[in-house]
Write a protein that binds this DNA or RNA. Sequence first.
DNA 1: CCCAATTTGTTCGTATGTATC
DNA 2: AGATACATACGAACAAATTGG
Lengths: 257, 257
Amino acid sequence: MQPVTTRAIPERLSRPQQVAEAIKSWVMAKGWRPGDRLPSEAELIDRFAMSKGTIREAIRILEAQGLVKSRTGPGGGVFVHQVSEERATALLGNYFYFEHLTIDDVYQIRKALEPELAASLAGRLSDAQLRALEEVMTCYDAPARSAAEERDQHIASLRFHALLAEMSENPLMRFLIRFTANMLADITVSRKLYTQPNQELWASGLDYQQRLIAALRSGDSAAARSILAEHMHNAHRLMHLQETVLTQRFLPESKII
Amino acid sequence: MQPVTTRAIPERLSRPQQVAEAIKSWVMAKGWRPGDRLPSEAELIDRFAMSKGTIREAIRILEAQGLVKSRTGPGGGVFVHQVSEERATALLGNYFYFEHLTIDDVYQIRKALEPELAASLAGRLSDAQLRALEEVMTCYDAPARSAAEERDQHIASLRFHALLAEMSENPLMRFLIRFTANMLADITVSRKLYTQPNQELWASGLDYQQRLIAALRSGDSAAARSILAEHMHNAHRLMHLQETVLTQRFLPESKII
DNA sequence: CCCAATTTGTTCGTATGTATC
DNA sequence: AGATACATACGAACAAATTGG
């Protein structure tokens, strides 16, 4: 038997990673905010006593995380950058490239969150906001007559929900609603050819947005909650009838509802 | 007046970013899975006709996103890697370093998700899983007598919820419950010195876990839902009494409940 | 234990591109 | 147009880590 040399944890970070972490702590400690400029490459090389290549790799790491952006030219350099919603969505999306999600998974979350969102917004929206919601609704006035039309309506519906989320003051709620909407928008409908669009089902949800906006305007949060809960139930059922499946792919950063 | 050359969008990607995206598409197209080896640095240099430095920066970008890992030595190379929950948590946490979250924000989500989680698990857990939950509960048998003890109980409670989430078959639910728990664990309790721990409040929630486990065992999902809803309400109220505040910092990848 | 092969990791000098003045 | 200040890119050499003989 050999005496096993227990290597505490072989999880040593590469030097660029160490430098990236160091810069991150530095930014935090100094309280630098988006727009502030980090020291130039040359200064970083001095301060960390690392070569240009290593420093550059460290900066790439931070850039990939969305924390900095760099510009060339005079007055250029590396700048602290607020992580964008797009970047955060893409990065989290990568996680679910491997942890496969089903339609049911996404709808379990939507069913829990969306009614709560609606309830929390009731009576708190301005006229301008309510009008903006009504604006997005226009493409709903008729039931879909083809699979393609139905899919378009679904996408439009997701946009409506994303807009609603945008009106929440809760950044986590905003992000999650929009993230799940993006996951659903990024699907392929592989419906059997003989399946007809289910008109009654959409008809039942046709006026839900009018009713929702009325509830939001009057401040009836219980009504808003139940209207959205009912709609989620219908939408989920419709996806099942369509035998919709989630595609597996890395979300491009650009694509956002 | 000069004829302005309208640069469509100055969002040109740097070459390492282009290479990183190309590799990502390549992995997707080839259907490579975690553990599969990418071509060696030398081969990538040939294939993309880029310098070593550029290729390495591209690999660093993918590594920062958690998509690949590289090892030195013979048999080494760059390998496709499943994005870990820790990495995903850290990356999403960066987003909320700038989009400040309040306790209320996090609890609005928890209040919506946790009862739904409990309901979905009722009647679906094995005896071993139920016993594991009972195991974690043990540190709850007495009300806290100091602020420190109360905080420890809170952390333990978060661990209980994380364990419960782990039993869900919904990867999105699993991630979100654990993410929010991590956000809450990463706080400082800045309580006024003269504030005493609120014993009645904890006492009211003392046996909630026993009742929850009973409901889970018997398959009573309505009961499970309402028990957890009630507990969330109490926990949220307690946090307010403690004047707890969320700290703003970049979450280290290691720290997971 | 040492040596050799393989692959990533790091350094440095130089040159190029880009934006500002 | 030219000078300046900055990031960006390249190439060759060397270092470190891992594996197998």
